[in-house]
Amino acid sequence: MNWANRITLARMALIPLFMLCFVPLSPSILGQSAILQIMNQHGTTFGVIIFIIAAGTDKLDGYIARKYNQVTNLGKLLDPLADKLLISVALLVMVQENMIGSWIAVIIIGREILITAIRMVATERGIALAADQYGKLKMVLQVAAIIAILLGNYPFHLLTDIRVDMALLWVAAGVTLLSGMNYIQVNYKMLQLGK
């Protein structure tokens, strides 16, 4: 396994750690450790840091894969899958924490499930479908929106009363839908030819 794919797998391994940052701990457990108390008090902050590191590895694995000619079909499958898992888990955590409405998470996660299903069909036919530019833009917007929401609209709330974090999420949801439609349209013929 090459380094680019290892970094992708590391991104996937960070997802459970991100989730743990939002697990409420009982007072009996908290009383046993100062470290657990700190983690409980600053769980969201730790979660944001882990999320930023995980999202940052997306650029790193892609850079290494291209620079050192380590682009593989496995990497083309794992990289977008890791992205989808990271974003989906973050959205589910935010729904659980009442930071966002469930309907917007359903839209974004539904699109990701559909595109993953298309990729799986393509893989069974020996076709590797890489992410396109719209998919990359969608990922950047989703990451920015998630970070802004987890930070409680910081630093935007210092400058304006407008919920920039929620506006970012709306834009991300719109681009997510458009990129999904574009992905289906662009790859439909390739899948038809691969029958």
Rank of each mutant, 00 (worst) to 15 (best):
Pro80Gly: 02
Ile109Glu: 02
Leu25Val: 13
Arg66Thr: 09
Thr72Lys: 06
Phe22Arg: 08
Gln41Gly: 09
Ala13Gln: 09
Arg119Phe: 03
Gly31Leu: 15
Arg66Phe: 08
Met12Phe: 12
Pro80Ala: 05
Ile113Gln: 09
Ala167Phe: 13
Met190Phe: 04
Leu85Ala: 15
Asn73Phe: 06
Ala122Thr: 00
Ser33Met: 13
Asp79Thr: 03
Asp61Met: 09
Gln185Ser: 10
His157Ser: 13
Leu91Tyr: 15
Leu150Glu: 00
Asp132Cys: 11
Cys21Met: 11
Leu114Lys: 02
Leu178Ser: 06
Leu177Gln: 05
Leu191Thr: 02
Ile100Lys: 11
Pro80Cys: 05
Lys76Arg: 12
Ile100Gln: 10
Ile108Phe: 15
Ser179Thr: 07
Ser102Lys: 03
Ile38Met: 05
Leu159Phe: 15
Arg111Gly: 01
Ile162Gly: 09
Ala4Leu: 02
Thr160Gly: 05
Ala117Tyr: 12
Thr8Met: 08
Trp3Gly: 04
Val48Ser: 01
Ala10Ser: 11
Leu150Pro: 00
Gln192Tyr: 11
Leu30Val: 07
Met120Gln: 12
Thr123His: 06
Val171Trp: 07
Ile109Tyr: 10
Met19Pro: 10
Gly31Arg: 15
Gln185Cys: 06
Asp161Ala: 08
Arg11Gly: 04
Leu193Tyr: 14
Phe22Ser: 12
